[in-house]
Amino acid sequence: MARRQTATLRTLRPVPPVWEIRLDLEYAPGAGSYVLADLGGPVREPLFPSVVDDTGFCTIVPRGHAVTRYLPGTPIDVIGPLGQGFRLSAAGYVPDRLLLIAEVDELPWLQPLYQAAPSVALVVEATTRGRLPPPARFPPTLELTLVTRDGSTGYLGPLESDGPTPVGIECALPRVRELVAWAECICIAGDMARYPALARLVQEVRFRPQTDFAQALVRVPMPCGVGVCDICRVTTRHGERRACVDGPVFDLMDFLE
């Protein structure tokens, strides 16, 4: 149901290189779903939660975003929650072992899942060490695997590639395979262009994973949120789908080529 609500901007704070804002809202979006907020532009903007609780949610916006100039207490018109978020109990039970995989810029959208299962492993990939959040920002219960594209810390990425590895640096792929074999459910947030390769990786390890074993968030512009504008269409192996209503979380295997 597309619901109109008024959110209240509660707090704003810089979390370099971005800003975190908190909105009080009666019906907040769950992990991977979103609300469409009227932030003064000619089209609404999708806001995904980085933290969700009983009274609202937090989200991340880029530095300089118009909303960072709003005052706390400002009412914001939103439509939502909208879309299909992460579906952890898709198999009929809550998984014990959850694997989260994110590119660092997309990491906030997996944050609400950090405690969604008894054992949660997180793989974060960044171009270089300086782009990774400090380890203190992660809860100690997370089993953390860091991947950098330049090998400056952790494993060498990209995580789906098994290219040549310089001596003394471990390639990420074997570690990722191990975690894929371990997991009962996988949630991914990254560049959609990498999803076919990640789908192949999961297929290699799990052969024929059940529906929604691995789920991937697709973040594209979504100005209408109700499936009428066709701007958010993504190509899947079942044909074109609209991220706003059919997603934005899809079965990763939908991206197998």
Binding site: P42, P221, C229, D230, I231
Partner: peptide, 15 residues
């Protein structure tokens, strides 16, 4: 498929 600027935007969906 969409470019937004100030108070206007351009859409190209290919219908």
């Amino acid at each position: 498929r969409i470019g937004v600027r100030a108070d206007h935007f351009v859409v190209h969906t290919g219908w």
